[in-house]
Write a protein that binds this DNA or RNA. Sequence first.
DNA 1: ACCTAATCTTGACATATTCAAGAAAACGGG
DNA 2: CCCGTTTTCTTGAATATGTCAAGATTAGGT
Lengths: 149, 149
Amino acid sequence: MLTPTERAIREAGLRVTQPRLAVLNALDAIPHADTQTIIEAARKTLPGVSHQAVYNCLDALTHAGLIRRIELAGSPARYELRPGDNHHHLVCRECGVVIDVACSKGVAPCLTLTTEQTQGFEIEEAEVVYRGLCPECATTPSPHRRQLP
Amino acid sequence: MLTPTERAIREAGLRVTQPRLAVLNALDAIPHADTQTIIEAARKTLPGVSHQAVYNCLDALTHAGLIRRIELAGSPARYELRPGDNHHHLVCRECGVVIDVACSKGVAPCLTLTTEQTQGFEIEEAEVVYRGLCPECATTPSPHRRQLP
DNA sequence: ACCTAATCTTGACATATTCAAGAAAACGGG
DNA sequence: CCCGTTTTCTTGAATATGTCAAGATTAGGT
């Protein structure tokens, strides 16, 4: 008998291994974790796992569609579970925190391009990132990151 | 008498320097150039310019709002001129080419979030990335990048 | 239990970016 | 036009993130 997580891995055509379970557990516990954080979290359940194994898992699980890679300016790659559900991200430009925001319109109307606009591209997905200040950074004067002097 | 480019640099509170002009010229000639490409292009007009100077310029000009940084999964940072005009990007997942696409709706309707959705964030901008295959990669069988075996 | 392919470990390597100290350049005032 | 102050650049090393490759181990079908 397989757990749902194990079943999902198998159904993606991948073998169920300790590093993969550790990575998925880490992502379940820490949404939008960056690579370093995932490595550290995975080592709590699987002490000696190599960083290379974690990179391999992240690549394999991303290609399999079980997780999704989020790349944001100025910080290492982050990953999240359940790429299928239709949501986007709010990113604080000061502290880098990422939170989910549901897409209010289902299939978002302005994310549909005309044939003329796509210029022959076959569009597969649209990704939206909202940038701004989180409540903490908006109220705190300045002692944060990446700000002009 | 200053050129428009020089005036823009001054009005941003920055000094007009050879490296900054070289970087802006490079970006004018090569839209969506990555850092390495910018360094090479800048050295055509200013032969010995250091990579560090180019990084400094890119940071300063980004903070000043004269250029915009675009970060895409798996490739180094890219930059573009005129961040103010309302457009988004189409990215080929095989060859990495980036092209502009105008936002068809002016102020895009679905990019407006409700107060409940923003959870206290002060949103400053929304960024949209469309991913897919460019015409060349869509018609060519496979000998490209980043594809599962 | 055995076999084979997939996956992991190890350690070096590659690439992108940042740090820090001194030298050079920009530009406002004399 | 030259000087002084401050910004910016050069140089060279360091850090961070991610990749490569060879051999050992493991998963899972038979």
